[in-house]
Amino acid sequence: MISFLGRNFVEKLITLFFISIISFSVVMLAPGDPSEIDPMNPKFTKEDIQRLREAFDLDKPLYMQYYLYYKKLFTNTLLSYKDNQPVLSKIYERFLNSLPLFIVGTFLTWCLAFPLGIHAALRRQSFFDRSTTFFSYFFISLPSFFLAYLSIIFMVKFFNVPVIGLATFGRESVGIWYMINDRIWHLVLPSMLGAFAGIAILSRYVRGQMLEVIEQDYIRTAKAKGLPDDQVYYKHALRNALLPFITMFGLVIPGLIGGSVIIESIFAWPGMGRLGYDAILARDYPVILSLNFVAACLVLLGTFVSDVFYMAADPRISIQDK
């Protein structure tokens, strides 16, 4: 058990090392020397390159560049171009803002996707199954920005509820209940929009997994024992069907930043995605590169945690490796 965890941890550390190399070397895509600038490329001017060379020590040998970049990042002395604030603290602040959005979104996704998927699988080919199938595809295919705008119009026009930003501006002194209410309204819509595609995709997976499990021999055994349907499906099948989703938990974390770029920019939500979008618009390279690195680290952490959970949940693994 310890050796399993230890090996997994070491593996993750090695992966982290490579992640750090890759997220740093992305900067190499930019022209390295002012003389290399393509005059047609509006993204880089001579001054830009100069600044880039300074910030990332592009004059030093490669390994020194790498070392200095991460030294600066972790000592919190890597500064943003835009406002000269330390990058790491900026990201942390935005991370805290993104967190509620992410938590509510994930909560909604997992709470809705599982019942939907399981139900659809157990009533295969029924009206319920067909309609959830269609709506899953509908929501998977619906561009989030399109949906976001449609729903903003809808909310503002019909309910007259402001939804842009963290909270409504200029109403800080109107009382605690109003504040909470306002906050919730601002939180629900973006997290729901973020969750829609997730619910659709996850419920498809759950359905597929469940369908596969109920075809297994041990489900036939459970039926042959004369167990009631509920026990067959919700005890014997469900437990097996859910196992793989423990490992999926780690993989939903990229949504924390990647999936939220569009939603956060539309709703002017000051989270990590928005930070990334602003940084890209302002060509704030220290922020962009660090954000990629931090996001990848978060995912890595997520997969580690889910590996541990998986080990705890599946008797086949934990015992073999003890």
Partner: peptide, 23 residues
């Protein structure tokens, strides 16, 4: 359901896959 496993028992060909792996 009252009959299966009670008055009618059944064993299957594949013992490897006929038992639920997580219980």
């Amino acid at each position: 359901q009252k009959i299966r496993g009670n008055t009618l028992g059944m064993i299957f060909q594949e013992p490897m896959t006929s038992l639920n792996p997580v219980f």
